[in-house]
Design a protein around this nucleic acid. Structure first.
Lengths: 223, 223
DNA sequence: TAGATTGTTAATCGATTAACAATC
DNA sequence: TAGATTGTTAATCGATTAACAATC
Protein backbone atom coordinates (compact mmCIF):
# COMPACT_ATOMS: atom_id res chain seq x y z
CA UNK A 1 0.00 0.00 0.00
CA UNK A 2 1.74 3.14 -1.22
CA UNK A 3 0.45 6.36 0.28
CA UNK A 4 1.09 8.89 -2.48
CA UNK A 5 -0.44 11.99 -0.99
CA UNK A 6 -1.13 12.60 2.68
CA UNK A 7 -4.72 11.55 3.29
CA UNK A 8 -6.65 14.20 5.17
CA UNK A 9 -7.76 13.50 8.71
CA UNK A 10 -11.36 14.17 7.70
CA UNK A 11 -11.22 11.14 5.41
CA UNK A 12 -9.51 8.95 8.01
CA UNK A 13 -12.15 9.76 10.60
CA UNK A 14 -14.84 8.52 8.25
CA UNK A 15 -13.20 5.14 7.73
CA UNK A 16 -14.42 3.54 10.96
CA UNK A 17 -17.91 4.58 10.01
CA UNK A 18 -17.64 2.92 6.60
CA UNK A 19 -16.24 -0.11 8.34
CA UNK A 20 -19.25 -0.24 10.65
CA UNK A 21 -21.80 0.05 7.86
CA UNK A 22 -20.04 -2.57 5.78
CA UNK A 23 -20.07 -4.92 8.74
CA UNK A 24 -23.82 -4.38 9.06
CA UNK A 25 -24.29 -5.25 5.37
CA UNK A 26 -22.13 -8.30 5.84
CA UNK A 27 -24.28 -9.46 8.73
CA UNK A 28 -27.34 -9.03 6.53
CA UNK A 29 -25.74 -11.33 3.96
CA UNK A 30 -25.55 -8.56 1.41
CA UNK A 31 -22.54 -9.36 -0.73
CA UNK A 32 -22.57 -6.44 -3.10
CA UNK A 33 -23.16 -2.72 -2.74
CA UNK A 34 -22.61 0.57 -4.51
CA UNK A 35 -21.58 4.08 -3.51
CA UNK A 36 -25.16 5.06 -4.24
CA UNK A 37 -26.66 2.52 -1.87
CA UNK A 38 -24.16 3.30 0.87
CA UNK A 39 -24.79 7.01 0.45
CA UNK A 40 -28.48 6.51 1.16
CA UNK A 41 -27.81 4.37 4.21
CA UNK A 42 -25.17 6.65 5.64
CA UNK A 43 -26.62 10.00 4.71
CA UNK A 44 -23.60 11.28 2.80
CA UNK A 45 -23.02 11.72 -0.94
CA UNK A 46 -22.00 8.86 -3.20
CA UNK A 47 -19.35 11.15 -4.58
CA UNK A 48 -17.74 11.54 -1.20
CA UNK A 49 -17.66 7.80 -0.67
CA UNK A 50 -15.93 7.22 -3.98
CA UNK A 51 -13.48 10.06 -3.34
CA UNK A 52 -12.69 8.75 0.13
CA UNK A 53 -12.09 5.19 -1.00
CA UNK A 54 -9.95 6.30 -3.91
CA UNK A 55 -7.49 7.87 -1.53
CA UNK A 56 -6.41 4.30 -0.84
CA UNK A 57 -7.02 2.52 -4.13
CA UNK A 58 -9.68 1.33 -6.49
CA UNK A 59 -11.72 -1.21 -4.59
CA UNK A 60 -14.71 -1.29 -6.91
CA UNK A 61 -15.59 -2.31 -10.39
CA UNK A 62 -17.40 -0.22 -13.00
CA UNK A 63 -20.96 -1.33 -13.55
CA UNK A 64 -20.84 -3.64 -10.54
CA UNK A 65 -20.04 -1.61 -7.47
CA UNK A 66 -18.18 -2.96 -4.47
CA UNK A 67 -17.91 -6.42 -3.02
CA UNK A 68 -18.91 -5.90 0.60
CA UNK A 69 -16.60 -8.43 2.18
CA UNK A 70 -13.60 -7.36 0.12
CA UNK A 71 -14.14 -3.68 0.85
CA UNK A 72 -14.69 -4.42 4.53
CA UNK A 73 -11.42 -6.29 4.75
CA UNK A 74 -9.53 -3.65 2.79
CA UNK A 75 -10.70 -0.86 5.07
CA UNK A 76 -9.71 -3.05 8.00
CA UNK A 77 -6.21 -3.29 6.56
CA UNK A 78 -6.03 0.47 6.03
CA UNK A 79 -7.02 0.99 9.64
CA UNK A 80 -4.20 -1.34 10.65
CA UNK A 81 -6.50 -3.93 12.15
CA UNK A 82 -4.35 -6.68 10.68
CA UNK A 83 -1.44 -5.61 12.82
CA UNK A 84 -2.77 -7.49 15.83
CA UNK A 85 -2.39 -4.51 18.06
CA UNK A 86 -1.96 -5.42 21.68
CA UNK A 87 -3.26 -3.02 24.28
CA UNK A 88 -3.05 -2.42 27.99
CA UNK A 89 -5.21 -0.36 30.27
CA UNK A 90 -3.58 1.80 32.89
CA UNK A 91 -5.97 2.75 35.64
CA UNK A 92 -8.63 0.21 36.59
CA UNK A 93 -11.18 2.66 37.96
CA UNK A 94 -14.64 2.85 36.50
CA UNK A 95 -13.54 3.98 33.07
CA UNK A 96 -10.69 1.49 32.91
CA UNK A 97 -13.01 -1.35 33.86
CA UNK A 98 -15.64 -0.17 31.40
CA UNK A 99 -13.06 -0.27 28.62
CA UNK A 100 -11.81 -3.70 29.71
CA UNK A 101 -15.29 -5.09 29.38
CA UNK A 102 -16.06 -3.32 26.13
CA UNK A 103 -16.11 -6.21 23.68
CA UNK A 104 -16.02 -4.07 20.60
CA UNK A 105 -12.29 -3.57 20.64
CA UNK A 106 -11.55 -7.30 20.54
CA UNK A 107 -13.99 -7.65 17.68
CA UNK A 108 -11.93 -5.14 15.77
CA UNK A 109 -8.66 -6.92 16.39
CA UNK A 110 -7.39 -5.03 19.40
CA UNK A 111 -6.26 -7.47 22.03
CA UNK A 112 -6.21 -6.50 25.69
CA UNK A 113 -3.18 -8.08 27.32
CA UNK A 114 -2.83 -6.27 30.64
CA UNK A 115 -4.50 -4.03 33.18
CA UNK A 116 -2.58 -1.96 35.70
CA UNK A 117 -3.42 0.04 38.79
CA UNK A 118 -1.93 1.09 42.11
CA UNK A 119 -4.98 0.47 44.30
CA UNK A 120 -4.47 -2.68 46.43
CA UNK A 121 -8.23 -3.24 46.50
CA UNK A 122 -8.37 -4.03 42.80
CA UNK A 123 -4.96 -5.61 42.24
CA UNK A 124 -5.37 -9.33 41.74
CA UNK A 125 -8.97 -8.98 40.63
CA UNK A 126 -9.66 -10.54 37.25
CA UNK A 127 -11.45 -8.91 34.35
CA UNK A 128 -12.11 -11.14 31.37
CA UNK A 129 -9.33 -13.51 32.43
CA UNK A 130 -6.86 -10.68 32.85
CA UNK A 131 -5.56 -10.06 36.31
CA UNK A 132 -5.12 -6.45 37.37
CA UNK A 133 -1.43 -5.95 38.08
CA UNK A 134 0.43 -3.36 40.10
CA UNK A 135 1.70 -0.45 38.08
CA UNK A 136 5.17 -1.11 39.46
CA UNK A 137 5.34 -4.25 37.35
CA UNK A 138 4.64 -2.37 34.12
CA UNK A 139 8.27 -2.13 33.03
CA UNK A 140 9.01 -5.84 33.20
CA UNK A 141 5.64 -6.63 31.62
CA UNK A 142 6.30 -4.43 28.60
CA UNK A 143 9.77 -5.95 28.22
CA UNK A 144 8.34 -9.45 27.93
CA UNK A 145 5.10 -8.69 26.06
CA UNK A 146 4.44 -6.74 22.89
CA UNK A 147 2.37 -3.70 23.85
CA UNK A 148 1.37 -1.30 21.09
CA UNK A 149 -1.24 0.87 22.72
CA UNK A 150 -1.91 2.02 26.27
CA UNK A 151 -5.34 3.27 27.26
CA UNK A 152 -4.85 5.84 29.97
CA UNK A 153 -7.63 5.97 32.53
CA UNK A 154 -5.75 7.40 35.48
CA UNK A 155 -6.69 10.56 37.38
CA UNK A 156 -6.09 13.85 35.65
CA UNK A 157 -3.02 14.87 37.64
CA UNK A 158 -1.23 11.56 37.14
CA UNK A 159 -1.76 11.36 33.40
CA UNK A 160 1.38 13.20 32.19
CA UNK A 161 3.68 11.12 34.42
CA UNK A 162 2.12 7.80 33.48
CA UNK A 163 2.02 8.76 29.81
CA UNK A 164 5.66 9.73 29.85
CA UNK A 165 6.54 6.43 31.45
CA UNK A 166 4.58 4.44 28.88
CA UNK A 167 6.23 6.31 26.04
CA UNK A 168 9.71 5.68 27.47
CA UNK A 169 8.94 1.97 27.59
CA UNK A 170 8.40 2.06 23.84
CA UNK A 171 4.62 1.94 23.72
CA UNK A 172 3.73 3.50 20.39
CA UNK A 173 0.21 4.81 20.89
CA UNK A 174 -1.60 6.40 23.79
CA UNK A 175 -5.34 6.72 24.08
CA UNK A 176 -5.96 9.31 26.75
CA UNK A 177 -9.24 9.60 28.63
CA UNK A 178 -8.21 12.43 30.95
CA UNK A 179 -9.93 15.68 30.07
CA UNK A 180 -6.72 17.36 28.92
CA UNK A 181 -4.70 17.71 25.74
CA UNK A 182 -1.83 15.39 26.46
CA UNK A 183 1.36 16.22 24.61
CA UNK A 184 4.71 14.51 24.83
CA UNK A 185 8.06 15.09 23.24
CA UNK A 186 8.52 11.41 22.64
CA UNK A 187 7.92 9.76 19.32
CA UNK A 188 4.49 8.51 20.30
CA UNK A 189 1.05 8.96 18.81
CA UNK A 190 -1.58 10.34 21.14
CA UNK A 191 -5.33 10.43 20.79
CA UNK A 192 -7.16 12.49 23.37
CA UNK A 193 -10.75 11.51 23.97
CA UNK A 194 -12.49 14.38 25.77
CA UNK A 195 -15.76 12.68 26.57
CA UNK A 196 -17.39 15.75 28.03
CA UNK A 197 -16.79 17.76 24.85
CA UNK A 198 -19.42 15.65 23.16
CA UNK A 199 -21.87 16.27 25.96
CA UNK A 200 -21.25 19.98 25.69
CA UNK A 201 -21.94 19.94 21.96
CA UNK A 202 -25.23 18.28 22.82
CA UNK A 203 -25.83 21.02 25.39
CA UNK A 204 -25.15 23.64 22.75
CA UNK A 205 -27.63 22.11 20.35
CA UNK A 206 -30.34 21.87 23.00
CA UNK A 207 -29.75 25.49 23.93
CA UNK A 208 -29.82 26.61 20.29
CA UNK A 209 -33.11 24.83 19.77
CA UNK A 210 -34.65 26.41 22.85
CA UNK A 211 -33.63 29.86 21.64
CA UNK A 212 -35.13 29.24 18.22
CA UNK A 213 -38.38 28.04 19.72
CA UNK A 214 -38.70 31.01 22.04
CA UNK A 215 -38.04 33.31 19.09
CA UNK A 216 -40.85 31.67 17.16
CA UNK A 217 -43.24 32.24 20.06
CA UNK A 218 -42.17 35.87 20.27
CA UNK A 219 -42.93 36.41 16.60
CA UNK A 220 -46.35 34.84 16.99
CA UNK A 221 -47.16 37.08 19.90
CA UNK A 222 -46.19 40.19 17.94
CA UNK A 223 -48.70 39.43 15.22
CA UNK B 1 -28.32 36.18 22.12
CA UNK B 2 -29.42 36.43 18.53
CA UNK B 3 -28.00 33.80 16.23
CA UNK B 4 -27.85 35.59 12.89
CA UNK B 5 -26.25 33.00 10.72
CA UNK B 6 -26.10 29.29 11.42
CA UNK B 7 -22.81 28.65 13.18
CA UNK B 8 -20.91 25.76 11.63
CA UNK B 9 -20.49 22.57 13.59
CA UNK B 10 -16.72 22.87 13.20
CA UNK B 11 -16.83 26.04 15.29
CA UNK B 12 -19.18 24.56 17.89
CA UNK B 13 -16.92 21.56 18.39
CA UNK B 14 -14.05 23.86 19.24
CA UNK B 15 -15.96 25.68 21.96
CA UNK B 16 -15.47 23.05 24.68
CA UNK B 17 -11.77 23.20 23.96
CA UNK B 18 -11.68 26.98 24.40
CA UNK B 19 -13.67 26.52 27.56
CA UNK B 20 -11.13 24.07 28.88
CA UNK B 21 -8.14 26.27 28.14
CA UNK B 22 -9.82 29.31 29.65
CA UNK B 23 -10.53 27.33 32.78
CA UNK B 24 -6.86 26.42 33.00
CA UNK B 25 -5.89 30.09 32.71
CA UNK B 26 -8.43 30.95 35.38
CA UNK B 27 -6.91 28.38 37.72
CA UNK B 28 -3.50 29.92 37.10
CA UNK B 29 -4.91 33.29 38.18
CA UNK B 30 -4.37 34.76 34.74
CA UNK B 31 -7.06 37.39 34.33
CA UNK B 32 -6.30 38.62 30.83
CA UNK B 33 -5.36 36.94 27.58
CA UNK B 34 -5.25 37.55 23.84
CA UNK B 35 -6.02 35.58 20.73
CA UNK B 36 -2.28 35.51 20.14
CA UNK B 37 -1.49 33.96 23.52
CA UNK B 38 -4.30 31.44 23.26
CA UNK B 39 -3.19 30.50 19.76
CA UNK B 40 0.25 29.57 21.05
CA UNK B 41 -1.15 27.52 23.91
CA UNK B 42 -3.71 25.72 21.80
CA UNK B 43 -1.75 25.29 18.61
CA UNK B 44 -4.26 27.00 16.34
CA UNK B 45 -4.16 30.41 14.64
CA UNK B 46 -5.13 33.60 16.43
CA UNK B 47 -7.23 34.43 13.41
CA UNK B 48 -9.32 31.33 13.88
CA UNK B 49 -9.92 32.10 17.52
CA UNK B 50 -11.13 35.60 16.72
CA UNK B 51 -13.33 34.32 13.90
CA UNK B 52 -14.82 31.62 16.08
CA UNK B 53 -15.62 33.95 18.96
CA UNK B 54 -17.11 36.54 16.66
CA UNK B 55 -19.74 34.07 15.54
CA UNK B 56 -21.32 34.75 18.92
CA UNK B 57 -20.36 38.33 19.65
CA UNK B 58 -17.50 40.65 20.45
CA UNK B 59 -16.12 39.50 23.74
CA UNK B 60 -12.81 41.34 23.57
CA UNK B 61 -11.50 44.84 23.55
CA UNK B 62 -9.08 46.37 21.08
CA UNK B 63 -5.64 46.84 22.50
CA UNK B 64 -6.48 44.81 25.59
CA UNK B 65 -7.52 41.35 24.55
CA UNK B 66 -10.00 39.23 26.46
CA UNK B 67 -10.90 39.07 30.11
CA UNK B 68 -10.44 35.40 30.94
CA UNK B 69 -13.26 35.05 33.44
CA UNK B 70 -15.74 36.95 31.29
CA UNK B 71 -14.93 34.97 28.17
CA UNK B 72 -15.07 31.72 30.12
CA UNK B 73 -18.53 32.52 31.40
CA UNK B 74 -19.76 33.69 28.02
CA UNK B 75 -18.66 30.48 26.32
CA UNK B 76 -20.36 28.59 29.13
CA UNK B 77 -23.58 30.41 28.34
CA UNK B 78 -23.24 29.67 24.62
CA UNK B 79 -22.81 25.99 25.44
CA UNK B 80 -26.00 26.18 27.48
CA UNK B 81 -24.27 25.37 30.73
CA UNK B 82 -26.47 27.91 32.52
CA UNK B 83 -29.56 25.89 31.71
CA UNK B 84 -28.95 23.55 34.64
CA UNK B 85 -29.34 20.52 32.48
CA UNK B 86 -30.48 17.50 34.42
CA UNK B 87 -29.33 14.11 33.21
CA UNK B 88 -30.09 10.47 33.79
CA UNK B 89 -28.10 7.38 32.95
CA UNK B 90 -29.88 4.41 31.48
CA UNK B 91 -27.87 1.23 31.84
CA UNK B 92 -25.73 0.88 34.95
CA UNK B 93 -23.17 -1.51 33.53
CA UNK B 94 -19.52 -0.61 33.44
CA UNK B 95 -19.90 2.34 31.11
CA UNK B 96 -22.95 3.65 32.93
CA UNK B 97 -21.17 3.45 36.26
CA UNK B 98 -18.06 5.05 34.81
CA UNK B 99 -20.13 8.00 33.60
CA UNK B 100 -21.93 8.27 36.95
CA UNK B 101 -18.64 8.65 38.69
CA UNK B 102 -17.13 11.00 36.15
CA UNK B 103 -17.01 14.23 38.09
CA UNK B 104 -16.34 16.41 35.11
CA UNK B 105 -19.95 16.64 34.04
CA UNK B 106 -21.10 18.07 37.37
CA UNK B 107 -18.28 20.58 37.20
CA UNK B 108 -19.70 21.76 33.90
CA UNK B 109 -23.21 22.17 35.22
CA UNK B 110 -24.72 18.84 34.21
CA UNK B 111 -26.56 17.35 37.15
CA UNK B 112 -27.08 13.61 37.40
CA UNK B 113 -30.51 12.97 38.90
CA UNK B 114 -31.20 9.32 38.19
CA UNK B 115 -29.70 5.99 37.17
CA UNK B 116 -31.75 3.15 35.72
CA UNK B 117 -31.20 -0.51 34.95
CA UNK B 118 -33.08 -3.79 34.78
CA UNK B 119 -30.53 -5.96 36.54
CA UNK B 120 -31.74 -6.84 40.08
CA UNK B 121 -28.14 -7.17 41.23
CA UNK B 122 -27.47 -3.46 40.83
CA UNK B 123 -30.92 -2.00 41.59
CA UNK B 124 -30.88 -0.34 44.96
CA UNK B 125 -27.12 0.16 44.86
CA UNK B 126 -26.05 3.77 45.38
CA UNK B 127 -23.64 5.73 43.24
CA UNK B 128 -22.78 9.18 44.47
CA UNK B 129 -25.93 9.29 46.59
CA UNK B 130 -28.09 8.25 43.68
CA UNK B 131 -29.89 4.96 43.97
CA UNK B 132 -30.06 2.81 40.86
CA UNK B 133 -33.74 2.40 40.00
CA UNK B 134 -35.59 -0.14 37.92
CA UNK B 135 -36.17 0.93 34.34
CA UNK B 136 -39.87 0.25 34.84
CA UNK B 137 -40.05 3.29 37.08
CA UNK B 138 -38.61 5.60 34.41
CA UNK B 139 -41.97 6.97 33.27
CA UNK B 140 -43.15 8.14 36.66
CA UNK B 141 -39.69 9.48 37.44
CA UNK B 142 -39.59 11.65 34.34
CA UNK B 143 -43.09 12.91 35.05
CA UNK B 144 -42.05 14.18 38.47
CA UNK B 145 -38.49 15.30 37.71
CA UNK B 146 -37.10 17.54 34.97
CA UNK B 147 -34.87 15.39 32.78
CA UNK B 148 -33.16 17.04 29.81
CA UNK B 149 -30.62 14.48 28.75
CA UNK B 150 -30.42 10.69 28.91
CA UNK B 151 -27.08 8.96 28.61
CA UNK B 152 -27.69 5.61 26.98
CA UNK B 153 -25.36 2.86 28.12
CA UNK B 154 -27.53 -0.17 27.42
CA UNK B 155 -26.55 -3.10 25.21
CA UNK B 156 -26.47 -2.53 21.49
CA UNK B 157 -29.70 -4.34 20.67
CA UNK B 158 -31.76 -2.57 23.31
CA UNK B 159 -30.63 0.91 22.40
CA UNK B 160 -33.31 1.78 19.80
CA UNK B 161 -36.17 0.69 22.07
CA UNK B 162 -34.86 2.49 25.13
CA UNK B 163 -34.05 5.59 23.07
CA UNK B 164 -37.52 5.65 21.61
CA UNK B 165 -39.04 5.35 25.03
CA UNK B 166 -36.92 8.19 26.41
CA UNK B 167 -37.85 10.41 23.49
CA UNK B 168 -41.58 9.69 23.96
CA UNK B 169 -41.25 10.73 27.59
CA UNK B 170 -40.10 14.14 26.43
CA UNK B 171 -36.39 13.86 27.11
CA UNK B 172 -34.80 16.37 24.75
CA UNK B 173 -31.29 15.04 24.26
CA UNK B 174 -29.80 11.58 23.97
CA UNK B 175 -26.16 10.77 24.39
CA UNK B 176 -25.68 7.34 22.90
CA UNK B 177 -22.74 5.09 23.77
CA UNK B 178 -23.79 2.10 21.68
CA UNK B 179 -21.59 1.63 18.63
CA UNK B 180 -24.35 2.51 16.18
CA UNK B 181 -25.77 5.60 14.53
CA UNK B 182 -28.97 6.03 16.46
CA UNK B 183 -31.69 7.86 14.57
CA UNK B 184 -35.21 8.63 15.69
CA UNK B 185 -38.16 10.31 14.09
CA UNK B 186 -38.94 12.16 17.28
CA UNK B 187 -38.00 15.74 17.86
CA UNK B 188 -34.94 14.84 19.90
CA UNK B 189 -31.28 15.70 19.58
CA UNK B 190 -28.93 12.75 19.45
CA UNK B 191 -25.19 12.61 19.88
CA UNK B 192 -23.58 9.28 19.07
CA UNK B 193 -20.26 8.64 20.76
CA UNK B 194 -18.54 5.79 18.91
CA UNK B 195 -15.66 5.24 21.29
CA UNK B 196 -13.94 2.66 19.15
CA UNK B 197 -13.78 5.00 16.18
CA UNK B 198 -11.16 7.00 18.04
CA UNK B 199 -9.14 3.88 18.74
CA UNK B 200 -9.28 2.96 15.08
CA UNK B 201 -8.00 6.37 14.05
CA UNK B 202 -5.11 5.75 16.42
CA UNK B 203 -4.62 2.36 14.77
CA UNK B 204 -4.55 4.03 11.36
CA UNK B 205 -1.91 6.51 12.45
CA UNK B 206 0.27 3.79 13.94
CA UNK B 207 -0.03 1.79 10.76
CA UNK B 208 0.77 4.79 8.58
CA UNK B 209 3.85 5.50 10.63
CA UNK B 210 5.04 1.90 10.36
CA UNK B 211 4.64 2.00 6.60
CA UNK B 212 6.59 5.23 6.33
CA UNK B 213 9.40 3.84 8.46
CA UNK B 214 9.66 0.64 6.46
CA UNK B 215 9.78 2.69 3.28
CA UNK B 216 12.67 4.72 4.66
CA UNK B 217 14.59 1.55 5.43
CA UNK B 218 13.93 0.23 1.94
CA UNK B 219 15.33 3.40 0.39
CA UNK B 220 18.44 3.16 2.54
CA UNK B 221 19.02 -0.41 1.49
CA UNK B 222 18.74 0.47 -2.22
CA UNK B 223 21.58 2.96 -1.96
C1' DT C 1 -0.12 59.81 22.20
C1' DA C 2 1.88 55.22 20.69
C1' DG C 3 1.33 50.37 20.98
C1' DA C 4 -1.52 46.61 21.06
C1' DT C 5 -5.09 43.85 19.71
C1' DT C 6 -9.60 43.41 18.39
C1' DG C 7 -13.51 42.76 14.84
C1' DT C 8 -14.15 42.15 10.14
C1' DT C 9 -13.35 41.99 5.25
C1' DA C 10 -10.76 39.84 1.61
C1' DA C 11 -7.69 36.07 -0.08
C1' DT C 12 -6.43 31.47 0.12
C1' DC C 13 -6.77 26.95 0.83
C1' DG C 14 -8.92 22.51 1.22
C1' DA C 15 -12.87 19.63 1.20
C1' DT C 16 -17.14 18.37 -0.89
C1' DT C 17 -20.02 17.84 -4.80
C1' DA C 18 -20.98 17.41 -9.70
C1' DA C 19 -20.00 15.63 -14.06
C1' DC C 20 -18.53 12.36 -17.22
C1' DA C 21 -15.45 9.33 -19.78
C1' DA C 22 -13.89 4.67 -19.01
C1' DT C 23 -15.26 0.10 -18.62
C1' DC C 24 -17.23 -3.89 -16.46
C1' DT D 1 -24.86 -4.86 -26.57
C1' DA D 2 -27.09 -1.69 -23.12
C1' DG D 3 -27.14 -0.37 -18.42
C1' DA D 4 -24.79 0.53 -14.43
C1' DT D 5 -21.35 2.33 -11.72
C1' DT D 6 -16.76 3.21 -11.01
C1' DG D 7 -12.46 6.30 -10.90
C1' DT D 8 -11.15 10.84 -11.73
C1' DT D 9 -11.20 15.56 -13.25
C1' DA D 10 -13.37 19.98 -12.83
C1' DA D 11 -16.55 23.17 -10.33
C1' DT D 12 -18.36 24.68 -6.18
C1' DC D 13 -18.66 25.50 -1.66
C1' DG D 14 -17.12 26.40 2.94
C1' DA D 15 -13.57 26.93 6.29
C1' DT D 16 -9.18 28.80 7.48
C1' DT D 17 -5.79 32.30 7.19
C1' DA D 18 -4.12 36.90 6.19
C1' DA D 19 -4.56 41.69 6.31
C1' DC D 20 -5.86 45.92 8.13
C1' DA D 21 -8.84 49.68 9.67
C1' DA D 22 -11.00 50.71 14.01
C1' DT D 23 -10.21 51.76 18.60
C1' DC D 24 -9.05 50.86 23.34
Amino acid sequence: MDLKKKVSIAVVKRLPRYYRYLYDLLKMDITRTSSKELSVRMGITASQIRQDLNCFGGFGQQGYGYNVEFLYKEIGKILGLNNNYQTIIIGAGNMGQALSNYGNFEKRGYKLVGIFDVNPNVIGKKIRDIEIMHLDTLDEFVKSTKVDIAMLCVPHDQTPTVADRAARLGIKGLWNFSPMDLKLHHDVIIENVHLSDGLMVLGYKLNEKMIKESQKIEKKQKR
